[in-house]
Simulated scan of single mutants.
Amino acid sequence: MDVRETIGWNLRRLRVAKGLSQERLALESEIDRSYVGRVERGKENVTVSTLAAFARVLEVDVSALFSPIDPNAQKPNALQSGRKRKRS
């Protein structure tokens, strides 16, 4: 796994653990939502400033985005998509 994939994996893992959607993470870190998706897929070379913005919103140290990935670990689950249902 290369460093971009490692950052993407950790970003998704930490985001889902906090219960944040990509859209909410993007809004709070002042970054485009589609860019967040590309980072999570390991398709972007992320700047230090962007990593710092993600870490601030996720309330972790930047180093958490570089944590080694267990080769046997399952991909982090996605949050349930769509709006919450209204109660009748």
Score class of each variant (00 low, 15 high):
46 V>I: 07
16 V>C: 04
81 S>K: 08
29 S>I: 08
26 A>G: 14
77 N>M: 13
62 V>Q: 06
32 D>M: 03
33 R>D: 10
34 S>D: 10
54 F>H: 05
56 R>M: 08
58 L>W: 01
67 S>R: 11
35 Y>D: 04
46 V>S: 07
48 V>F: 09
56 R>L: 10
55 A>R: 01
23 E>S: 15
48 V>A: 15
40 E>A: 02
70 D>I: 08
34 S>F: 09
24 R>K: 14
85 R>V: 12
53 A>C: 05
6 T>W: 02
37 G>M: 06
78 A>F: 12
51 L>P: 05
68 P>V: 10
45 N>D: 10
85 R>T: 12
75 K>R: 12
21 S>G: 06
88 S>T: 14
33 R>T: 12
32 D>Q: 10
56 R>S: 14
48 V>R: 12
12 R>T: 04
10 N>D: 01
28 E>K: 15
6 T>C: 11
67 S>I: 12
62 V>W: 09
58 L>V: 08
1 M>I: 09
32 D>A: 14
38 R>Q: 12
28 E>S: 10
83 R>Y: 06
70 D>M: 05
72 N>S: 08
25 L>S: 00
40 E>M: 02
47 T>C: 12
11 L>Q: 06
58 L>C: 00
68 P>R: 06
78 A>M: 10
86 K>D: 06
20 L>M: 08
14 L>S: 01
38 R>T: 10
23 E>V: 11
24 R>L: 15
60 V>Q: 00
45 N>Q: 09
26 A>E: 05
86 K>Q: 13
76 P>V: 02
57 V>T: 02
74 Q>H: 11
16 V>A: 03
65 L>G: 01
2 D>C: 12
48 V>H: 11
11 L>R: 02
33 R>F: 07
49 S>A: 15
3 V>D: 09
8 G>H: 04
51 L>I: 00
47 T>E: 06
88 S>R: 14
10 N>M: 01
1 M>T: 11
27 L>P: 06
57 V>S: 00
23 E>C: 06
71 P>Y: 07
24 R>G: 07
5 E>Q: 08
57 V>E: 00
84 K>H: 11
34 S>V: 10
42 G>F: 02
80 Q>N: 12
35 Y>G: 03
39 V>R: 03
19 G>A: 03
52 A>E: 15
11 L>G: 00
35 Y>W: 12
40 E>G: 00
50 T>D: 10
57 V>Q: 03
71 P>I: 00
37 G>E: 02
59 E>K: 15
41 R>F: 08
72 N>A: 11
49 S>R: 15
35 Y>K: 04
79 L>H: 03
76 P>K: 02
46 V>F: 04
62 V>T: 10
29 S>T: 02
5 E>W: 01
7 I>W: 05
76 P>D: 03
